[in-house]
Computed example of a mutant assay.
Amino acid sequence: MSGLAVLFLIFDAVGKVLSAPQFVEGTLQLGYPASVVVGLGVLQLVFLAVYLIPRTSVLGAVLWTGYLGGAIATHVRVESPLFTHVLSPVYFAAFLWVGLWLRNERLRSILPFREAQ
């Protein structure tokens, strides 16, 4: 599950770091200046690195949750469609957390799927 989200997030980060026209245009449509695109891409790559390192993966998931929360707020502000734009960061956050939960025994002990008997 993490892999799917990570692949998309790598694609998004690299597109921003390279200032691909589609990524710059998308950022402009959301009301941000083109000057922030590369910085956002670098930030995403840092968050991905933190998420992919087993010792810091929970911190990475927390950082991504904050970043994706900002994406939700941005889409709400520009009145984007609910299921395809506003909620897509929720989908990615869920994939990141569920994938992390499946591979991290300590996280499963802290956040059990069901109550201990």
Rank of each mutant, 00 (worst) to 15 (best):
V86D: 08
G60V: 03
G26A: 12
S19C: 12
V24R: 02
L40V: 15
S57F: 12
A73K: 07
G31Y: 00
Y32S: 06
R77K: 11
S57C: 15
L63C: 05
Q29D: 02
P33E: 04
F47Q: 04
Q29F: 00
S19K: 15
V76C: 02
S57K: 15
T84R: 08
I72D: 15
I72S: 04
L52Y: 04
G60Q: 06
Q44G: 05
Y51V: 02
A20G: 15
Q22M: 13
L40F: 13
V58F: 06
V78T: 11
V78N: 10
P89A: 05
L52H: 02
V50F: 02
A71K: 11
H75E: 08
Q29T: 00
V42C: 07
L59I: 15
L43I: 15
G66K: 06
V58S: 12
G69P: 01
A61M: 08
P54A: 07
P54T: 05
T65S: 12
Y67S: 05
V58R: 15
I72M: 13
G69W: 05
P89S: 02
T74L: 03
A20E: 11
A61T: 04
G26R: 00
A20F: 15
P33S: 06
Y32W: 10
L48K: 06
T65I: 05
Y51G: 01
V76P: 00
A49V: 08
S57D: 13
Y32K: 01
L68F: 11
W64E: 01
Q22A: 13
E79V: 14
F47C: 13
T27P: 01
A71W: 12
V36Y: 11
A61I: 09
Q44W: 06
S80M: 11
F23Y: 13
L48M: 01
G70V: 07
L68E: 05
Y51E: 03
V76Q: 01
L68H: 06
P81E: 03
G39M: 12
P33A: 01
Y67A: 07
V62L: 13
S88M: 13
A49D: 07
W64R: 02
V78K: 08
R55T: 09
A34E: 11
E25I: 00
I72G: 05
